[in-house]
């Protein structure tokens, strides 16, 4: 049965209708790029007209970045910050996980420690920075202490609630098969609460970054935070944006890395939570 001309006509019309007119909703990627480039272009054009003491512009920032990295000064301060950051964070992870496990497993430990944990967790840690600088001086120990305190509570609280949600059935099965307390910890409780621990680590990474920048800005001696204060006092706005952008990238990279680890080590998160 060949199509009648009328039917062919109708099909052609349908095809025409299917060839939709240009709609913005179908080109969201384009919208995104136009928005980003538009903003950078506007900033460049507008920023050149503003007093450079107050606002810089992208090409000046790029030039400043090349200059700072070339001079080696930026790299050195960044390494300094990162070193302190990772030492403090490692301490926070170890202490947070150990205390969290103890508090989750033993009620005595929970009751002894929880008043302090809740009190310190509620206190904005930035408020402790002046005291910590008083105790530890302006150098690395004070900054490590700030990073530690910023990071330890999210890890501790998450580990604690993770251990609490481990089903007692799992622990009993372990016992029934004659597992000792150490085995129960390492083979049952740790793996079962890992998703929670990783969620705590993700929070801690961001908070510790805020902690170290604030401490460095306040002490204003070494590190990226000190650079921020130095460049802003010198009204070198173009240089000021270099550490800001670096810190933003660092924040994204660290969070992504933890999310990746989370997916690798704790992929059973969703089913586990249903228990």
């Amino acid at each position: 049965m060949a199509l009648s001309t009328l039917e062919q006509q109708a099909l052609a019309e349908l095809d025409l209708v299917r060839q939709k007119p240009f709609r913005l909703v179908d080109h969201l990627g384009l919208v995104r790029w136009v928005s980003v480039f538009g903003a950078i272009l506007l900033w460049e054009v507008f920023g050149r007209d503003v007093n450079p003491l107050f606002l810089s512009y992208p090409s000046a920032i790029a030039r400043a970045a090349v200059q700072l990295v070339g001079a080696g000064q930026f790299t050195q301060q960044a390494l300094n910050s990162l070193q302190v950051y990772f030492i403090g964070l490692a301490g926070a992870l170890v202490v947070g996980i150990v205390l969290g496990l103890l508090m989750g497993r033993y009620r005595l430990a929970e009751y002894i420690l929880d008043p302090f944990v809740y009190a310190l967790d509620a206190t904005p840690r930035v408020a402790l920075i002046p005291i910590l600088l008083l105790w530890f001086g302006l150098g690395a120990p004070a900054k490590i202490a700030v990073v530690f305190l910023s990071g330890v509570f999210p890890v501790l609280m998450n580990t604690f609630s993770g251990v609490r949600t481990v089903s007692s059935g799992l622990v009993e099965v372990g016992r029934a098969y004659g597992a000792g307390e150490g085995k129960i910890f390492t083979k049952i409780i740790m793996p079962a609460s890992l998703p929670f621990i990783m969620a705590g680590v993700r929070l801690a990474v961001g908070r510790a970054l805020i902690g170290i920048i604030t401490a460095e800005m306040f002490a204003a001696v070494t590190g990226l935070g000190a650079l921020l204060v130095r460049y802003s006092s010198a009204l070198a706005t173009d240089k000021f944006f270099v550490p800001v952008i670096f810190l933003a990238l660092l924040g994204v990279i660290l969070t992504r890395a933890v999310e990746y680890l989370e997916k690798r080590f704790a992929p059973w998160k969703e089913t586990e939570r249903a228990l």
């Binding site: 913005l24 969201l28 990627g29 805020i210 935070g225 802003s232 706005t237």
Partner: peptide, 30 residues
């Protein structure tokens, strides 16, 4: 609006990723 979302999201994510503390000196200047 998916269009508004696509246009604004890159900026929002970039600003959200920046530790806001780092912007305080600049804001004090402004």
């Amino acid at each position: 609006s998916r269009i508004a979302s696509a246009a604004l999201e890159p900026h929002i994510n970039a600003l959200y990723a920046t530790p806001q503390v780092a912007l305080t000196p600049l804001l004090m200047m402004w």
